[in-house]
């Protein structure tokens, strides 16, 4: 398998991923099974397991709890690494070697929303005091409108914001900085 999804989450739209459970029935049936309808409970079982792994739900019956727990922890570590790649200043501000633990403590039980939103939600919940991390957040807020619920959207038109003694300008979808640094 691939360690996967480590490259370029840009262009991947989390908002599009919501498919109702049991929404199968798109007409494809093989060997007489109503595939996708979850007749044998596969859809429900898969959702129970993924919710136990990433969203804090109870462990479904019958699984090796220690092995599933090891997977849950590995998923959190991987998620922390991916968020650190998207939000390097935010991660560095946690202190040397501290990011995975700090982020995981907050992210445990919260369903992943992709590294851009995960880092953004974390930053809003823990407003960074570190100047570089605060700047990273300010530049994202300048370029994107994020309501905390759905995928961030690019902001339109020119804008200027004063942040930490710098003037941040948005011009044609890109950030430009004037001032000290």
């Amino acid at each position: 398998m691939t360690g996967g999804a480590t490259v370029g989450r840009a262009g991947d739209e989390p908002a599009r991923q919501r498919v109702p459970v049991g929404a199968g029935g798109d007409g494809i049936a093989l060997r007489g099974h109503p595939v996708g309808a979850g007749g044998g409970g596969l859809a429900r079982r898969q959702e129970e397991l993924v919710r136990a792994l990433v969203a804090g739900a109870a462990m479904p019956a019958g699984f090796d709890a220690a092995a599933v727990g090891a997977t849950r922890d590995a998923l959190l570590r991987k998620r922390a690494e991916e968020v650190a790649r998207t939000w390097p200043r935010l991660a560095a501000a946690a202190g040397p070697g501290q990011w995975a633990r700090t982020f995981s403590a907050w992210a445990a039980g919260r369903a992943p929303q992709g590294s851009l939103r995960d880092g953004w939600d974390f930053a809003r919940a823990h407003p960074p005091r570190d100047a570089a991390a605060a700047r990273e957040l300010a530049l994202r807020e300048l370029l994107w409108a994020y309501d905390g619920e759905t995928a961030p959207r690019p902001r339109r038109g020119p804008a200027a914001r004063l942040h930490g003694g710098e003037l941040h300008l948005r011009w044609r979808g890109r950030a430009h900085t004037l001032g000290r640094r």
């Binding site: 991923q17 459970v21 859809a43 898969q46 959702e47 397991l49 990433v54 998923l75």
Partner: peptide, 19 residues
């Protein structure tokens, strides 16, 4: 993913006829 929840990684399937 299942039910709109992203796992963030590849998860195993049950080795069942339904899967």
């Amino acid at each position: 993913r299942a039910g709109g929840v992203e796992a963030g990684h590849l998860l195993p399937l049950p080795r069942s006829r339904e899967a």
